[in-house]
Every structure is written in structure tokens, then in C-alpha cells.
Design a binder for these strands. Sequence first.
DNA 1: TCGTCATATGACTTTTAAGTCACATGACTA
DNA 2: TAGTCATGTGACTTAAAAGTCATATGACGA
Lengths: 206, 206
Amino acid sequence: MPKNTFFNLPEEKRERIIEAALDEFAKNLYHNASITRIVDNSGIAKGSFYQYFEDKKDLFKYIVDLGGKKKTKYLEHVLTEIDNMNFFSLIRELFIAGIIFSKENPKLSNIGYNFANSTDEKLKQEIYGENVPKSNYMFKILLRKGIARGEINPDIDVGLVSQMITSLSISIIEYFFKEIRKTDDMEMLDLVDKMLFVLKNGIERN
Amino acid sequence: MPKNTFFNLPEEKRERIIEAALDEFAKNLYHNASITRIVDNSGIAKGSFYQYFEDKKDLFKYIVDLGGKKKTKYLEHVLTEIDNMNFFSLIRELFIAGIIFSKENPKLSNIGYNFANSTDEKLKQEIYGENVPKSNYMFKILLRKGIARGEINPDIDVGLVSQMITSLSISIIEYFFKEIRKTDDMEMLDLVDKMLFVLKNGIERN
DNA sequence: TCGTCATATGACTTTTAAGTCACATGACTA
DNA sequence: TAGTCATGTGACTTAAAAGTCATATGACGA
């Protein structure tokens, strides 16, 4: 947790520091990111930084947490509908919310994605603590509900398929940024629907 | 390219250096990996290292290339069958070959995977040069052939689906290591077939 | 006006890395 | 045997990072 001094700062200054940190951590993985550069780019003194944060990890955890909370905000309205919508509609809304989050918060999204994929398990433990994000787990629950309701083929391997969907949910964001970029939202919705069609029906010609 | 001195080394010593480099680069991303540790762990002097390699990048490129060539060896016998096998059999063999490569070369596989996922485009350009691996592209070709042969639903978005398959081909390796680990090969084949079933038929209950 | 306290500062210390270089070694040649 | 050349060496140089600390500032209350 940042120190009180950080939260006492005038908002404009706090934003400047967060912006510089987002830039730095979006461009560099944790170990390669430089506090010196963050400090230079936000126009504060090195010493001041350590008035606001315990250390580099403290800042990084703050940023990762910001991202997690913000992403949760994008997803939560979907998850309240969990008992009112069928499986594929839920997944559709989750994918869309995920894409919009990444579109509106590209740096936060990038930082979270890179960190989640990093292999430094010790650092992950320190940063995530109890809050390890497990989208796998969420999809497992949704799949089980879907099977119970008769929407999903009960013969599937739920563990494997939830991993597949997790991986597709990331993949669609990558594809979106790589191939579509400055699109109108219609194209994005079209992409999501195409992916869901494949997930529903497969690609074999019948 | 390593210098001639490196290739003139007795095999045992060369292997020691490669082993130490694999360890280091598998544990740490490029920027965080330490030549000093590689040198210590392989029992050679710092100065000797620079007799063998131009610099850190030279070694890393050599290791990444090793991985690429080795992986190609695992895949190439499948690709010679491209006109004799149907789409799903080809994909099946490619997935299996990929898993076996990762199983038999976990460090090389890890290094390649992490590097391919890294965001340092400048470094990627320097390391890959012309040889940027594009498994997407391979799947695109296979999909087009599959559509031409009437095996694949012609309405799919080939670009999107090839991205999906690329992502699944990585996902299955992750799942294999996470959930199955010390398996007999039957379990692995079962996993591949389950994933392919979903890709073929989707998960919706009919 | 004076004193106090939270905040601001940047030169400094320490650590760790990549890469260099003057010199050592030892096998093979004339 | 003497000389040469490829190879081996580790202390050294340079660079860049995280984190520290003695000191400065300035707002506010008495």
C-alpha cells in the first residue's frame, strides 16, 4: 500500500505519477522497469517517490491492483446476470466487456496481461497475495451451470474447456488489437460472434 | 553467430555452456538473465565467454535459433504429409509433435514461448531477423486447404480461426504441464483428441 | 513573528550488471 | 629449444539501477 502522503497529494500530481508508472510498466516488465525513469517522467524527486511508496514493489502492486479493480468494474454487471442469461450470452457479454476494458485501458490491460503471463512465481505471489485472478475458475462454474441447464454438451472435459475459453478470451483481445484497431464497435461485435460461433458449433463442415 | 572459438571447443565444454545458458534464460527473461551467472555456472571465465560470443544478444540468438531448429525437426515429418492427410489429422499430429517437443525440451520450449510473448519488439526484430515464427500463417494455409477439400465450414473467418488455433496449440501445452505432468502418453493423446473434438464440433448440446 | 511538522529534494551509497584488457598458458612449428 | 598463435583468465571499467539521508521549504497555529 502506498503511504498516506501519496493519497494526500493533489490529484493532478498523483495522476502524473500514475501515468508515468503506467507508461513505464507497460513498456517494461517489472524487473526492467526503472523507478528513476518514472521519477524523471513525472517530474518528482527520487526522494519524494520514497515518501509515497515503500519501494518499487509497492508501486507495482498498486498499479496491478488498480487494473484488477477496474477490470472487475467492467465485468461485474455481466456477472450479476449469471442466473438470468444462458451460457453463450454470458460468455459473449464477458468477451465484449473484456475487449472494451482493454480498449479503454490499454496500458493497464497490457501490464496485467504481461504480469499474469510472467514466470516469476515468487513475485506473483508477492503481488497477487490472495487475489490471484482465476478466470479459469469462473469459466468452470459457468460451464457446469450450462451443462446443468442442458445448454452445453455434458461430455466435454470441463477443466480443459475452461482453459480453452480463458485462452480464447485473451486471444480475441490480441486479434482485436492486431487486426482491427480503430474499428467501430460493430466490427468488434462481429468478431466476438464469429468466435462464439466456432466455440458453439466447431469448424467442421457438416 | 558465436565465434569460431566456440565451435572449436571440446563438445563437453560447449554443452556445459549451453546448459548453463538454458538454465539462466529459462528462469529469467532476456533482460534479467545474467552472463555473470552463466559464466559461473558453466565454470568458465568471463573473458572466455567473450572469446566465444560477441555479446549477450549473440548467445541468446544462438539459443533461440537452437530451439527453433529443434522444434522444426519435431514438426517437419508432419508437414510432409500435408497433402495426404485431412485437416484434423494434420492438426492432431502437429499438436502432438508440439507437446512432445515441449516435454522433451522444456527449457528450450519455455525460452521460446516467453520470448515470443514478450513485448520488446526491437529485441524481437534483432533476434528473429527474417525468421519470425508465424504458426498463424501455417494454420491459415491448412484451413484454406481444408475448406477447398470440403472438410471445413467455408463460412469461418480464416484469420480469426487460425489465431484461435495458434492460441489453443499453446494452451494445450500449458494445460498438459499444469494438469497432467508425469503422464503416460495415452493421457496426452486423450487430451489432444478432446480438444480437437471441441474444435470440430463445438460445445453446444445438440 | 516564531516554531513545528509534513513534505520535497538530489547528491550519495550500494549493488549488480555487461563488457574490456593486459597478461598467462600451452600446443604445435621451425 | 625458441617462438608464435589461439585460447584462457579475472581484476577492472563503466553504466545503471534501487534505495537513503541530511537538509530545505513552506503552510499553519499560537
